[in-house]
């Protein structure tokens, strides 16, 4: 590589740090507030820790936007060693503040180093698949304009679909969007909601519902199949499933269903982080697919 490029990413990316093979990457951790105490992800405070607290103690939790000083610290520390910084940011419609802070940092350093902020319209593994595909791209091409154009294509072609046994976690976290329509059913249902990269509003959308996990997985597969048809796509380059490990059987069943029913080049199981547990709720999981 000719150009030295640093990537910054939040920890709501649905994949483990050890799964990302890029040497120049810095992670920012989202502050998580559980019963008025602030936590950051660590060996102790993990997604499983929070799920456990949800199940046993019925605690409430919320997240806060990334801290500007922490973003500035990373830029300060690295600005001399790199030619370009790419900040892969979670969807601005879910956290307008995070993108705003990232933009302020970009402005602050515009004379010193070029920073590209990518509004992914995604959260969890949706951010992760965009990050994976972007890393593949910049290994081959470091032209700023090409990176920006490619990132825009990635964003529009990335879809995350979630099975959330309890939508109230998304609701309490203020991210329910139009999926609110799926709340309040007397029947026990498994709502399927999504973050669709081709939806410029970037909000959580309801997709359908199942009474069983099998039905919910069919809804997901059919939705992805339609997206493939719209794009005349022969093969999905990358698919990542991730969620509450207590629901591992269903996570793996979804992975298998996708592999069996759709042509997927690379399929993997990701890992969710502390902040992601807030919105998925116990048993929640999903699949992120990049069609670019």
């Amino acid at each position: 590589m000719d150009k030295r490029i640093l990537i910054i990413c939040g920890d709501n990316l649905g994949v483990g740090y050890d799964q990302i093979s890029y040497p120049y990457i810095e992670y920012l951790t989202y502050p998580v507030i559980v019963e008025q105490e602030e936590y950051r992800e660590s060996e102790t405070y993990t997604a499983s820790w929070l799920f456990d607290k949800f199940r046993k103690e019925k605690v409430t939790a919320k997240s806060s936007s990334l801290r500007m000083n922490e973003m500035i610290d990373i830029v300060e520390k690295n600005k001399k060693d790199f030619d370009l910084i790419i900040h892969v940011v979670m969807g601005s419609n879910m956290s307008a503040a995070t993108l705003k802070i990232a933009e302020e940092v970009r402005q602050k350093y515009k004379e010193e180093i070029k920073i590209i902020n990518i509004d992914t319209r995604q959260a969890t593994a949706g951010v992760g698949v965009i990050l994976f595909r972007l890393i593949d791209f910049i290994k081959e091409n470091q032209e700023e304009e090409d990176i920006i154009n490619y990132a825009q294509d990635l964003v529009k072609n990335t879809f995350t679909l979630y099975v959330l046994p309890d939508l109230n976690y998304l609701y309490r976290g203020g991210r329910i969007g139009k999926a609110k329509a799926l709340l309040g059913s007397l029947l026990r249902i498994l709502p399927v909601v999504s973050l669709m990269g081709d939806n410029p509003d970037g909000e959580v959308l309801p997709v359908g519902q199942g009474r069983t996990y099998k039905q919910a997985h069919s809804v997901i597969v059919e939705t992805l199949r339609k997206k493939m048809e719209e794009r005349n796509l022969q093969e999905i380059p990358l698919s990542v499933v991730a969620g509450d490990e207590m629901n591992k059987d269903n996570i793996l069943a979804l992975k298998e269903e996708i592999e069996n029913k759709l042509p997927v080049k690379k399929s993997m199981v990701g890992k969710i982080h502390l902040v992601e547990a807030i919105y998925l709720g116990p048993g929640g999981y999903g699949v992120a697919v990049c069609m670019k």
Partner: peptide, 11 residues
């Protein structure tokens, strides 16, 4: 009727 509504994509 339940089947009908379960099959509806709300968006």
């Amino acid at each position: 009727l339940i089947s009908l509504l379960m099959g509806r994509t709300i968006e």
